[in-house]
Design a protein around this nucleic acid. Sequence first.
DNA 1: GTATATTATCATAGCCATATGATATTTACA
DNA 2: TGTAAATATCATATGGCTATGATAATATAC
Lengths: 140, 140
Amino acid sequence: MLSQTAEYALRTVLYLATTDQAELSSVSDIAERLGIPRNYLSKTLHHLAQAGVLTSTRGKHGGFRLTKPASRLSLAEVVAPFDGPTGARICLLGRVACSDSDPCPAHGRWKSVSNEVSTFFRDTKVSDLLESPVARVKRA
Amino acid sequence: MLSQTAEYALRTVLYLATTDQAELSSVSDIAERLGIPRNYLSKTLHHLAQAGVLTSTRGKHGGFRLTKPASRLSLAEVVAPFDGPTGARICLLGRVACSDSDPCPAHGRWKSVSNEVSTFFRDTKVSDLLESPVARVKRA
DNA sequence: GTATATTATCATAGCCATATGATATTTACA
DNA sequence: TGTAAATATCATATGGCTATGATAATATAC
C-alpha cells in the first residue's frame, strides 16, 4: 500500500511520538531502533523536515523531532511527501481525466472505496495509533 | 493503486467483455484500440492466459478471449497475477507478522479500510463495470 | 508446401525506488 | 581552537517495472 520510504517515515514519526516532543533523536538511534538503513533514513527524514513534518537540528547533540504534537499530525501529512495523495483521486483505469462528469467504467464503484482510504489517512492522527508499542519490525 | 501492467490487464479484460466471448481478438487490435504498447501487452496477455483468465489461440486468425463469462470473473482474478492480493493482508507498517493476535499499532484502524479494498476487488465482477463505454485513454 | 498471420519467447535498454558509502557542513564542548 | 557528533549532500550501485525490437513457433489458407 505504502512505498518503502513512506513506511519508514510513518514508523519514524510513530516512534518520535512516543518520546517527548522537545527531545531530539538522532538518525543513528532511530535507524538502529527501528531496523532501517541509516543513510537512507537520513535522506527520508531530511525530506520530512523540508515538508515541515519534522524539525531538524544540525551539529553535535542535533537530531530530529516532531514539528507539531502527534494529536494534530495526520497520517496523510506524513505520507504525502513520498506517495502523494493516497487513495482517492486515482482512477483505477489510469485515466488522467476521470471525474463524476467524465467517469471511467469503474468510477462509480471505485470512488466510494478510494474515498474511505483517503479519509483514513486524512482523519487518522499519529496519536490515534499510540495505544500499542512500536515494535522493531521482523522481516522475512 | 494498480501497477501499470495490472491496469493494462484490467482494461483489456474490460474490452474483451464487450465482445462476444467466443470471438478472438489479436494483440495488435487490442493494443491499438486501447493505446497500449503492443509487445508489452503481448507478454501481459500471455501471463493472463497462464493464470487461466484468458484463453489464447496461436497461428493465423488466433488471438485471445475470456475463459469464462464476465459475470463470473472478478477484478481480483484479473489483477492478482500481477499485483498479488490487493488491499487486505498488507500491514501498513510492513510487518510480516501482523494479525489480530499480534497487531501492529495501525492494525485495528487499518484493517477495516483494507478489508473494504479487498472486498471491492473480490466481489466486483467485470460485468459490473460494463455500463459505461471503455474509451481510449487520454494521457498527459 | 509455401506464404502469411499470429502468439511465444529472447535479448536488451531506460528509469525509478531502494540502498550503500564517502564527503562536506554545522554545532557543541573541552 | 580543535575535536567530535551530528545533519546535509554527493556519487554510485542494484533490482524490478516498463518498454522496444527481433526471432522462434504455430496454425491457417491458398
